[in-house]
Each structure stands twice: as C-alpha cells, then as structure tokens.
Design a protein around this nucleic acid. Sequence first.
DNA 1: AGCCGGAAGTGAACCGGTAAAGTAGTAGTT
DNA 2: AACTACTACTTTACCGGTTCACTTCCGGCT
Lengths: 342, 342
Amino acid sequence: MNQASPRVTINDVAARAGVSKGAVSMAFNNRPGVSQATRRRIFEVASELGWSPHQTARSLSSRRVDIVGLAICRPARLLGLEPFYMEFISGIESVLAERSCSLLLRLVRDLREEITLYEGWWRGKMIGGAILVDFHDDDPRVPALRAIRLPAVAVGHPSLTGGFPSVWTDDATAVAEAVRYLAALGHRRIARVGGPAGLGHSGIRRAAFEAAMAELGLGGRRQVATGFAGEEGARATHGLLLTPDRPTAIVYDNDIMAVAGAAVAAEMGLTVPDDVSLLAWDDSQLCRLTHPPLSAMSHDVHQFGGEVARALFGVIDGSCGESLRVPTPSLTPRGSTGPPRR
Amino acid sequence: MNQASPRVTINDVAARAGVSKGAVSMAFNNRPGVSQATRRRIFEVASELGWSPHQTARSLSSRRVDIVGLAICRPARLLGLEPFYMEFISGIESVLAERSCSLLLRLVRDLREEITLYEGWWRGKMIGGAILVDFHDDDPRVPALRAIRLPAVAVGHPSLTGGFPSVWTDDATAVAEAVRYLAALGHRRIARVGGPAGLGHSGIRRAAFEAAMAELGLGGRRQVATGFAGEEGARATHGLLLTPDRPTAIVYDNDIMAVAGAAVAAEMGLTVPDDVSLLAWDDSQLCRLTHPPLSAMSHDVHQFGGEVARALFGVIDGSCGESLRVPTPSLTPRGSTGPPRR
DNA sequence: AGCCGGAAGTGAACCGGTAAAGTAGTAGTT
DNA sequence: AACTACTACTTTACCGGTTCACTTCCGGCT
C-alpha cells in the first residue's frame, strides 16, 4: 500500500528494476544499449509504478520541446464564429499528435502583444516553434521574430511572410476563377466584400479581383474592405445593395459574412440567387446550412492545418525550410449563385 | 560582437551584474532579499543580454507549471462550427493571461484517448491542472482522473462531474423558462432538438423539458436526441416538421442546429415564426445573422470560460475547491419566435 | 592464449533554474 | 561592548531527466 505515493521518479524505476537510471532512460527513448529482456523488465516496473518520464526534466536536459505555439490575433467574439480557425487547429493537431506534440494556444489583442508573447515563449524555451497567421503589410512580427530566430512557419503568400517559410493557397487564381464564373453566368456588376485593408491576403485578393474584372472589361465593380465579422459583412452588403446600380453578385472573404449577406438580402426582399448571387469563401459546413445553400470557393482547411504543422516540423528539425503551396480553393456551386434576373 | 550567442543563462546575467545567480532568481521572482538598486541593475543586464528565465528549468525546480490543459472530444469538423468553444477558450485565456499561464489544447477522438492524454500530461508534469468538458453519464474520465489526482475543474452540473469541482449554468431552469415562454405565446406543440442522449447536460435539459411540459399539461411533446452538427439539426427538424401534428415551436440545444432548422423551414415553405417558432441556445452572434434573427437562451460564454479558469486556479493552489453556479441563460427574444398562426 | 570488437550497462557531469540554510554587515538596544 | 534583529546576499543542494565517457562481459578469430 503506497499510502502516500509522493512522486515516483526514474530513480525508483531504476532501483526497482535493478539497473541504473541511464538504462531506464535508454529504454524509454528506445535507444540501443539495453537488451530486450532488460527493456521489457524496465517497462513492466514503470507501468507497475505508474511512472512516465517527467517532460519538463526531459526537455531541460535534452533541449527539445514538444510544444508548438500559436497566437491568434483577432477579437475573441469574432473568432468563435469563424469556423476557419477551429478546423485549422484541428488539422494542425492531427499532425502534432502523430509526434505526441501539443499546441500552446493564445488569443492576443494586437501584434505587439503577440510579439511579446512569442519572445517570452521562445526565450523561455516553452515552445520548439511557432505558427504565424494573418500577415499584414509590413508586419512588425517579421523583423522581431527573425531577430530572435524563432523557428516558425507562416500562413500566407510568400511575398507577405518576410522570409519565413510559408504554406499558402493561391488566392489570386481562386479569385479570378470566382469572377470568371460569375461573369459566365451573365453577371456584369460584381462586388466583393473583403477583410481589412491592411491584411495581407485581403490585399492579394483585392488586387486579383481588380485584375480579373478589368480583364473581362467589367467596370463599375466595387470592393469593400471590412472586418471579418458577420455584422460587418451585413453592413457592407446592405451598403452595396442600396446603391442605384446595385451588384447582381457578391463575393465574400469568408463564410460568416456571406451568411450575413444572405440574411440582409432576405430582409430587403431580394431573392437569392435571382436578384443577387452570393459566393462565400472557405466553405465550412455553414454554407450548407442556409437556404439556399451557399456556393463557395472551398478548400480543405483541416488538411491545410496539417500541412502547416508538417512544414513546421521541417523547420524545427532543419530538414526543410521551403514554402509550400497547397491546392487552390475550388469553386463549389450551390444554390446561392445563378444567372441574374433579366 | 557576440558572434554566436549560443544561449545566455542566469549565470551570465549574474556574472555580468556582479551577483550570484540566487540573487538574480530572487529579483526575477520579485522576492525580498535584493535591494532596489541591485534589482534594477539585474533587470538592466538581463534585458541587455536578452535573457528571460528558462521556463522548463524554472518549473523543474519550483515544481509548478504555468500551463493548463484542455482536451475537447468532438469531431473536428463539428468543432469548427460550434461558436461555443472558441468563445469559451477565449474566456479561459483572458483569465490565464493575467497570470501569464498558457493553454495546452488538444482535440481528441474519444474519451479513452482523452484519458490517456491527461494521464500523460499530468504524469509528465506538463500541466498544472485541467479543464474537463462534455460530461457523459458514467463518464469514465471521473474514476481515471481522480485516481491520478489530476487537479481539474469540470464544466457541467455537479451531479455529473463525479466530485470534480464544477462551474455550471442552471440549464434545467433555463429550459423551463424557454418552455413557459413558448407556451405563453400560445404554443402547445413544442418540440426539442437536443444533443446526444448520453451527454450529461443534454440529459438534464431533456428531463427539464419533460417536466416543464408536463407541468403545463402539454402532451404530444417530442424530443429528438441527435448530435450537435448542423446537418443533424436539419435532419431532426425535417423529421419533426413532416409529422402530421407538427410542432409549432422548436427549442434547440445550440445555435448551429437552430440555424440549420431555420433553413429547413424555409426550404419547406414554412414561415418563421408564423408557421414555426425557433429558439436557439447559447446565443452567439450567429443568431443575429439570420433572417429573421434567432431568439435564443443566451449566456455569456466568454465570462463562463473566465470563471472556469478562475476556479481552476482555486483548485490548483488549494485555495478553493467549491463548485460555482454562473448566471442562468436568459431568454433573448428576437424575430424567430412569436405566436403560432391561428 | 591473446587480442579484438561489440553489446550491455554504469556513473558522473550536466541542463538552467529554485529554495533553504548560511554569512556578512549594519543598526538598534540595553 | 555584547547581544539581537534585519537586510542583502552567497552557497549549496536539489529538481528529474539525458548524455557520454568508460567499464564489463562475452564470443569469435588467429
């Protein structure tokens, strides 16, 4: 009866198995140097005693940490809504778990806080590497985190991530496809509701939209830069639909804004897609829960997260520091897009 | 020129500041024993050298960890949609950050995996405590995690959490309020679309619904136990609305299912709320993005998360191990509920 | 018999901090 | 002057692993 089993350490296991603690260590890191028989005995004793290696001690001496950090800088209320992140995180996890790594998550309010956080985590050796998201133009994280040599993978077009290896989707091509699709349906007044102006990928999409519209000879296009929140999407949609030559199709930068846009259209007595076509982005299940279901530029966010995690491992163990492009979001037409009413 | 500045440790700081490393340690943990002047000098040197204490080493000797664990066991795709969790997490974070703690997050597939994970985390001293969510009837986590003495706070009614201090909302009262509200509007055939049968809080709500209906003398009530996914909510709604004496009001267990329910109603040509009233639960912003906006039993999930974190600190430092009830979800009527059509 | 090589295992030195006991030095008390 | 009480440190022993140089032991080869 181990009445008070205070804390069992590698020493207890070693003693009980009749070996030195070095042997136990070797056994548990399956390194050569212990016979099969001894190895087995050590494992038996360990499970008998309910011992697992103390991660903290382990990483102190081995100088590797099985934790990666992720800071997300968006208002909390907004994050909850955005299906993207949870799915992204779950994708990351799925790969981390393979290596029994864990994810340290923090929601921050601004980039300064994010920088401070990463500095602390990295200098304090709490994390082995980090995942950086939501790049801005002239992102202050780039110089700050390069300076401390934080091993990191960025999410976003390589032109934005200032030298951090990145994983990205070809948003420009996807936007062009979206525009061409709507144009092919007969739309000529196409608008776009995008994320904040300073945000890198919003900028890319914005430019791509301009270019695609120009190429098709479609003037009068309108783009709105807003947040990512549903309410902002609603406001933007409202604004667009109240203009005299209102657009007959709207492309959104995420799901939430598109859903909000659909509600606004309904409220204004407009029929989707006859009066206005709506095209969402990301394509979470949310798109299938509305009526009509939303057409979307869809991509596999879960897998995307997985690739990011894999890339990070490449950076951490130095085996690979290349950027990686994952499949371009592809058009998934549903009920919310169609030819404009005559 | 520190060409290769390999790693600066407390020793370097101590040496450079002309004190012992003990002094540096005291200064950085603002403990008495160093004069203001020395303290200041130590900080100067530290920032000059870009040193922060090595968290791993620190927690090895001080035997405290500034990390708390959270495992969530729901299908990934589903999690992304559920606004609840992100908001909950952000609430937790807001309190953790005050103590510069971090959150270790993991998504698991089943309770066995969750148990294994917590055991590993706790035995490996990776976490100082944990947050347990989604209790089931006879939850296997209870005996397993009590056995290893994991400091934890549970989310859910104390009757479910097997002795773990818990933070909970009075769902039973809220359900009763919901039912009485709908009955007062004139509804007599009220249905409920709930979460999985085995899930603790679903059970509580289910029983409360039964009781409230019985009390009002309303028979013919119907409850469906399903998942939490939108599609499941849609299917359940579909089923309910196709019955001959279809309900005139439906209460959902979360936002997503209610949104999906609204789409189903629209698809079937039913008007909300005239033909059918819909009442959501949790009340994320999603409820305000549909048309009509969804009435909901709303509560402050962000704050709820915060209380959970605070309770966990109480458990970890032994100052408090009491369960805590936070405000009961309150009715927020919007456009999706109204009197039934004559 | 003597030598070599490899497998199995030991022991001690770390990793970078914290904590607690010990030491000056200084001021106040009687 | 001797004793006490503090403050401001220093010293030293951990915390619980990993790593690496070094010993043993054993079989095979010449």
